[in-house]
């Protein structure tokens, strides 16, 4: 693993190396190095499985983090590859040519975060959210509570109480 990491650091500018448990390492690479690195890992280092792809919205930094989790079944090692892209419609290269099921993850990320993956099959079709007409819901500026209030009707008979107001009514109504 150490030698593998040395090669990744030297060839692909990997940084923020984080060894999480036996056989699992996370690190960050610049966006232009992602595709060459993943190609290299699949072709020459035995990382044949794409376990998942996911994203995180770092709204404060105006960035999305995309994470690829790759597995080498022979050495039982996992690599978590992180990269950062701009939040404002920058998009990311598709890896569906390497693994067909990557298209599904990419379609999900397009729907949930609005991250574009040009060329990825069916990437613009609804994934879970049929008829969605709002901004992608996993973007942090999406106000879930406001959406709930506007979209779903309250069930009849529901009532709630503010603890401080209720305690005033019960304990010191005249103060």
């Amino acid at each position: 693993m150490e030698q593998l990491l040395d090669r990744i650091i030297a060839g692909f500018e990997a940084a923020d190396i984080e060894k999480r448990k036996d056989g699992q390492v996370f690190f960050t690479v610049p966006k232009p190095k992602v595709l060459p690195l993943i190609n290299h890992l699949k072709m020459f280092e035995g990382f044949r499985n794409l376990i998942l792809m996911t994203a995180v919205d770092w709204i404060e930094d105006n960035q999305f983090q995309i994470t690829y989790l790759l597995n080498n079944p022979d050495t039982k090692t996992d690599l978590g590859i992180r990269t950062f892209i701009g939040r404002d419609g920058e998009g990311m290269d598709s890896i569906h040519e390497l693994w067909g099921h990557a298209a599904t993850f990419q379609r999900e990320m397009k729907e949930m975060f609005g991250i574009g993956f040009p060329g990825s099959p069916r990437v613009d079709e609804p994934f879970l959210l049929e008829g969605w007409d709002d901004i992608p819901p996993m973007r942090r500026e999406f106000d879930t509570k406001k959406y709930s209030e506007e979209t779903y009707f309250p069930r009849p008979g529901r009532e709630t109480h503010d603890p401080a107001t209720y305690m005033k009514q019960k304990l010191y109504p005249n103060d």
Binding site: T144, E159, T160, D162, P163, Y166
Partner: peptide, 22 residues
Amino acid sequence: ENEAIDLVPVQGIETRDGDSGL
């Protein structure tokens, strides 16, 4: 985030210092 929870009075639980009774 879904407004799924309401706070309601419960029989047998008194409102007192440190406990709203809800």
